[in-house]
Design a protein around this nucleic acid. Structure first.
Lengths: 170, 170
DNA sequence: TTACGTGCAAAGTCTTTGCAACCAT
DNA sequence: ATGGTTGCAAAGACTTTGCACGTAA
């Protein structure tokens, strides 16, 4: 892995300040840190995987390409196919989650974040979030009327954000 | 258009029985039929466009490829790029609408259908629908709390359908 | 040491575009 | 007739895969 321009230790040095990733050290799946989660399932902990996880944590709602760009700022040799493979792995492990927004490119975010709903503005593309509680009335209706169990984490609502709404009426 | 195996008249003959498309004859945009809608905006009425519209009406929630397969059963010479171009046109005219379901492939349906929400089962892929009224509580909350104007027609909810839910607990 | 993970390049899938021929009006 | 439409083929965007080398454990 000659191309990696980061320290060759088990874990890459963190930038100063507390990152979202560090906040994960206590782990999402109960209380395992992300690297223990990998190792305990027989996967290896690599700088690439850490960098991808950090990028997901830092960018929030980023596409694979955006994540690649972010990772490559630190380690420019990381290949895009590694990004895809890593995202798939982290997703299957429940460390990250993804949703399909507008275009078709999925966006990834940390699974530790509270389940939330994405509000995508179809005019400016801005992404807002709503809490799980706010959509409780919806999930209840769907349960009662259709016996449907909503996956809140995957819920995306399209429409017009506050700003674009005002401009529109103007 | 040698490849078209359908009558070369302005409109392709309808199969016996009342189709969803025929029900559109009175038109969605007030009271124009779909072909008047096209002509009045300077677009031409072609057999391809009719076939695509019929396929969308018949399949409901079909991907471009599925629509192409359906169209090609009748007229095997219709090219996939024509399908894409036609869907884009019909979409921009408000004759059809699309939503992004699971994978990323958009699915199309007639815009005449009452605005509805798609309930996608992440286990079996089944697509159910909920009415606009059922999601009113959600849109109200998003409006009140975020000033967000929900586009109900584009709303898709992922989760587990009634059947898969039962099987899961078993 | 062992076999998992990565970089690289090539192939795949889905969609778009340029262009000449064609046809709806 | 005449300009919007289509089929075809090639190009694009995004993602996946095969393989040999490198590396975490």
């Amino acid at each position: 892995m000659d191309e990696l321009l980061v320290p060759q230790a088990n874990t890459v040095a963190h930038p100063p300040g507390r990152t979202r990733l560090e906040a994960m050290e206590q782990g999402p799946q109960g209380h395992r840190s992300w690297d223990e989660e990998l190792r305990s399932r027989g996967y290896r902990v690599t700088p690439q995987r850490q960098l991808v996880l950090e990028a997901v944590a830092r960018l929030n709602h980023a596409t694979p390409e955006e994540i690649a760009a972010c990772v490559q700022q630190t380690a420019k040799g990381v290949n895009i196919s590694t990004i895809y493979r890593t995202l798939e792995l982290l997703d299957s492990l429940g460390l990250v989650a993804h949703t399909h927004l507008n275009h078709g490119a999925p966006t990834y975010h940390l699974a530790t974040e509270a389940a939330h709903v994405h509000l995508v503005c179809q005019n400016c593309g801005k992404i807002d979030e709503a809490s799980q509680e706010e959509v409780a009335p919806l999930t209840k209706v769907l349960d009662d009327q259709h016996g449907f169990e909503t996956n809140v984490a995957h819920l995306t609502v399209f429409g017009l954000c506050n700003d674009c709404r005002s401009k529109h009426s103007a």
